[in-house]
Structure formats: C-alpha cells, structure tokens
Amino acid sequence: GQMTKMFFRQQRQPLEHYVIMDTDPARVEAAKKDGYIAIHEDASSHKTLSRFDAEYCDVTILCLTSSDVENIYITLNAKSISKSIKVIARVNDPETIDKFKYAGADEVLLPNLVANTMIYTAIRQPTMYKAIHAILTGKSIANIDEIHVHASHAMVGKQIEELDFSSSKLLFIGIQRRGDFIFNPSKTERIETFDVLLVMGRKISLEYFKLQHEGDIHVKK
C-alpha cells in the first residue's frame, strides 16, 4: 500500500533488510518488480511469523494494513512468539489505541490524525507547513535524525551544554527517554544510556557529530 511505499522511500538501509508479506498475489508481484523482497503469505498467521528467528536476530514487524482488526491480530501473534519482536502498528481508528497497547504494540502510527493535523497546519500556518513538508520529504538541506546513546558513548553523563550542538551547526530538539519525550530540556540535563537524542541539521554535520561522539568509549573514573 501507500504507507509501505512511503516507508521504503525514507529508509537508508538496503532493501534486503526488509520482507513484504501480502495475501494479494498481484501486489506481491508489483513489489518484486519495484525491487523489494516480497512473499505471498498471511502476516497474521502464527505459522508464518514463527519462521522469523527472533532469538538470534532483531525482528521488527510493521503492521500497515487498513484493518485495525488484522493489525491487532498480527501484533498478538508476534508477541506470542517472542516478546523481543518489536511491533509498530498502524491505527486507523484512534478509539482502538488501547486495544493495540493491550495486544503489545511497541509503537502506534495514526496516519489519519497526522494527515488532518498537516492539513490544518497548511491552512493556518502555510510557511510552517512548507518547512515541515520539505524536511520530512527530504527536499530540504536540513535533516532530522536520531542519535541512540549506548553505554560505550563518551556523551553518557555529560550535560547537554557540554555537547555544544551549535558549534556543530546542529539544532538540538529534545530527548526520548523511557517512553517520554523531553522537548528542549535544560542545558544542565545529563545524557543517560539508552537516551535517543533528536537533532536537526545538514547531513554532513550530523555525520560528523556522530563520528565525534558515538564512536568514543566512555570510561568511568
């Protein structure tokens, strides 16, 4: 579907890292012609999902069908196979969000709600809409990226002001920490292991910053 195509257009990883499953043979063949790995299988089938060896590799399942019932069923089956399988599910009806959470979905996507918000922004704040649209579609020289902090990174324990994002020509937006997003935290906020830093800037600036900080070894004194 369209959401799957949009997802792949934004991905930087090789296509062979992903497998598309669909019960419609025509869509499977169309995906193959576009260069994707696609198989004619039912993603809601426990037998199908159990083929993915979650014990020895990281498995993430994207439930992007237009049916909330089917997406919940896929989520339940995936989590029954292994709790380590990450499930990102599309939610068509916002009133079913709790059901997805109970089923074990790690993240939920609300395309209809996002679309409505973007339409409202386009009408009321057209300049902001153009800026957001350019960034999200890759038409802007600026990129928004995530920096995943691990225990080996030298930035662990440092205050945000010590990282000096501005000197790297980056805009620091906030931190995702234990399920909560901290927008524009205090400069004295310290970076913790497993934080996800959200930053914006030119691609070359982002890559340089990562080389400086992600590869360093953090040694406790």
Rank of each mutant, 00 (worst) to 15 (best):
Q11D: 01
L15E: 09
D22H: 02
D22M: 02
T23E: 06
P25K: 11
A26S: 13
A30S: 08
K33L: 09
I37L: 13
A38P: 03
A38N: 03
H40W: 13
H40N: 15
E41I: 06
S44K: 03
S45I: 08
T48W: 09
R51Y: 10
A54P: 02
Y56P: 01
Y56M: 13
I61K: 02
I61V: 09
C63S: 01
L64C: 00
V69M: 14
I81G: 05
S82A: 15
K83I: 12
V91Q: 00
V91R: 00
V91C: 02
D93N: 11
E95Y: 09
T96N: 10
F100E: 03
G104H: 06
E107K: 07
L109H: 02
L110E: 01
Y120E: 10
A122R: 03
I132N: 01
I135E: 04
I144R: 04
E146C: 06
S152L: 14
A154Q: 11
V156G: 05
K158S: 12
K158E: 10
K158I: 12
Q159H: 07
Q159G: 14
E161Q: 14
L163T: 02
F165I: 06
S168L: 09
S168P: 06
I173S: 10
G174Y: 07
G174T: 06
Q176I: 12
G179C: 05
D180F: 12
N184A: 10
N184F: 13
T188I: 13
E189Y: 03
E189Q: 13
E189T: 10
R190N: 11
R190I: 15
T193Y: 07
D195F: 04
L198Q: 07
M200A: 14
R202W: 06
R202L: 13
I204G: 06
I204Q: 15
I204E: 15
E207K: 15
F209Y: 08
Q212N: 10
H218R: 11
K221N: 13
K221Q: 12
